[in-house]
């Protein structure tokens, strides 16, 4: 075991962490808006919108992210029309190509997660809101969406973790995030095991912290599933009262 080399690998790979996090968070954030739109299209009951969303899901969930990355980066640049358009300012840059591919991909998966959340809102809640005089957007914003988010959070947390790992594919379009730096280090030193063990450990550490954060959110959003604090206090008081008497 060459501890010195493990340390050197770690020092080489750490500068890739900000880029990995940026790719994961920015694309998940942007993807969430598209996902919400797609989920609402699916539930709108308007046929053409529903079909569009189904088609989108079919393409982006059904094909590998690697293929999508290649098509967006190397594929689109083949067309002179694309190269001479406004879009080229973004598509020229490997960073934005990665963001676009990751965003479109996560939007497909997340839209189903959100749709599941929206469907799980009990009808009684909606009726109660209506009885209070809410309707339309206000009802959606105040009642349906918060309940849907709470329901969708565990699955969305998994999606975020998958996205952190998916960023490793960006290394194939010249982006030097953690995996890109690791592959470069391997080709310079020819030591595969040490470098990828360190890279894997970095992803593990990132995802460990992420899962803790998601768990904290879940805890905060589900007070109704825990024993209310007031009953605990009462129970304690009863006990002590019992001891005295």
């Amino acid at each position: 075991m060459d501890m010195q080399f493990f340390w050197e690998s770690l020092v080489t790979l750490i500068p890739g962490i900000p880029l990995t996090l940026q790719l994961a968070f920015l694309s998940t954030f942007l993807g969430a808006f598209i996902a919400l739109g797609l989920a609402m299209m699916r539930l709108s009951g308007i046929r053409p919108l529903d079909w569009f969303a189904r088609g989108y899901l079919f393409v982006f969930r059904g094909s590998p992210l690697l293929v999508q990355l290649f098509l967006i980066y190397y594929g689109l640049s083949q067309f002179p029309a694309v190269r001479h358009s406004f879009a080229w300012t973004f598509l020229r840059d490997p960073y934005w190509c990665a963001i676009i591919a990751l965003t479109l991909n996560t939007a497909a998966y997340a839209s189903e997660v959100i749709r599941g959340g929206l469907l799980s809102v009990p009808h009684g809640q909606v009726e109660a809101a209506r009885a209070c005089g809410m309707s339309g957007f206000k009802l959606f914003r105040r009642i349906v969406l918060p309940l849907a988010i709470r329901q969708a959070l565990p699955a969305y947390g998994t999606e975020l973790i998958l996205m952190v790992k998916a960023t490793s594919l960006a290394s194939i379009i010249t982006i030097m995030e953690i995996t890109g730096l690791a592959a470069k280090l391997v080709s310079e030193t020819y030591r595969v095991i040490e470098v990828f063990v360190v890279a894997g450990a970095i992803y593990l550490a990132i995802n460990f912290i992420l899962t803790r954060i998601i768990m904290a959110f879940e805890y905060k959003l589900t007070p109704h599933l825990r024993e209310p604090r007031i009953t605990k206090v009462l129970a304690l008081e009863n006990e002590s009262a019992g001891e005295i008497s």
């Binding site: 190397y74 640049s77 083949q78 190269r83 020229r92 490997p94 194939i172 010249t174």
Partner: peptide, 14 residues
């Protein structure tokens, strides 16, 4: 990763 890839990006102007 591959020489063919930098050819593609030279041709596209990246």
């Amino acid at each position: 990763g591959k020489t063919q890839e930098h050819d593609l990006d030279l041709m596209s102007g990246r």
